[in-house]
Amino acid sequence: MKRRITQLHPFTVLCLAVFTVAVATAASVWWLSCAVIVMCLAIGAVAGKARKLAALSGAIMLPTLLSLLMIHGLASRDSSPVIAAWGPISLTRGGAEVAMMLALRTAVLVVVGLLCGLLIDKHQLVAAIDLSPAPPQAGYLLASTLFLLPQMMEKQHAIGEAQALRKAGTGRGLAGWLQRLRLRAVPLVLSSVQDAHDRSVHLAARGFPARGEHSRLRQVADSQIQRGVRWVALLCSVLVPAAILVPFGGAA
């Protein structure tokens, strides 16, 4: 089961995610949103990523929920009963319900999006973009960023250690923080821009971006069924929300 999930074509996973988010947002009923979140956690558990998914989702959703409670719960202008009051500030039932509904709507996007990020293999995604009709530059940019990120993180860490070793940027307060930012950012940016410049010379010499058919070492498993699922999912992402939201035949 785990192998089947992780071996899906990256675009199939993304299309199913678009469909799920579109339908759950259009329906905006609490039980459907909760069902989607539980289903995602279950899929995450099967893929062995449930703990990471829950932690990442919680880190994004907790401040969002607090923010929505402040905006709609505390600053609500409706006349529903007061749940709690702290001096001049009060939390109304109607306001809390609005905040919870909006938080659930956002939670569906967050959990589904993060699950996609955890399930999709980055190498497969790059290969799938390269094999698609998208401009060849798109695959290069995604691949390059995903592989440069850990390298630059390491470089930034090494620069920080080197500056600490020569006892530079040890000041406190805002001035010390600004000095640390400068001492890390300047060498990092200078060396990275130099590297990018060197790379551009080599890439241009090799005739990048390559046009036309070319062979790829990594192939992405795909099937007629998956292609069909993608089209149906995309079509339903438009039709199902339209059927839910547009009042047909005097339903309004």
Binding site: L149, M152, S192, V193, R199, S200, L203, P209
Partner: peptide, 8 residues
């Protein structure tokens, strides 16, 4: 194109 990944 080579500068964009660095910027990201």
């Amino acid at each position: 194109l080579t500068l964009i990944p660095v910027a990201l």
